[in-house]
Amino acid sequence: MRQPVRITVNGRELEADADTRKLLVNLLRDDLELTGTHFGCGTGTCGACTVMLNGRCVKSCCVLAVDADGAELLTIEGVANDAPHPVQQALAECHGVQCGFCTPGMVLSAIELLQDNPAPSDAEIREALAGNLCRCTGYVNIVAAVQLAATRMAQGDA
C-alpha cells in the first residue's frame, strides 16, 4: 500500500509516494538520496539513523515514512552550508571520527544538546550521546570535540 508523503527536508519541501512499510530512514536514503543518514540496527538502539524531526532528534529507523508526513526534518546534509558546523569541525580536528558511520548521528545529537545546554559538562555530553553507539573511538575524542565545539560556539556568541 502506498501513500503520499510531504515533508520538508533541510528546508526543501519534498513529496514522495511511499510504501506504508517504508521506514523514514529508507525514504531519506533511497528516495531522496540523502545517504548521510545511516541504517545501523533497526531497533532504535544504535543512533546511526538519527535525524531531527520537528526540531528534536529521533531515530529514523523507528519512524514510518508515512508517519513523517507534514514533518520538518533536518538531516546531516542540512546542518551546515559551505562552512562546516562547529561540531563537525571539532570532530574533524579532535579526530573524533574513525569509520564515520556513527558520526552524522553523533553530530545531530550534539547539536541538540548544545541548543538546550550551551555549556555542558563532560558527563552531560556523555549522557546526551548515550543513544549513539560508536565502535571505533571509545567516545574519548568525540566528547572532547563536543566540548571544543561548545567553547567555540560560546565564543562566537559572545
Binding site: C61, C62, V63, D67
Partner: peptide
C-alpha cells in the same frame, strides 16, 4: 494503534508484529 512507535515499529521490523491496519494517534 501507533503512538511514538519506539516499540511497535521495531516489532514490525523484526517480524514480531504484523498488523493489517495501523491507526496513528499522534
Amino acid at each position: 494503534p501507533l503512538s511514538g512507535g519506539m516499540t511497535l515499529v521495531p516489532m514490525m521490523t523484526l517480524g514480531l508484529a504484523a498488523p493489517e491496519h495501523i491507526v496513528d494517534l499522534k
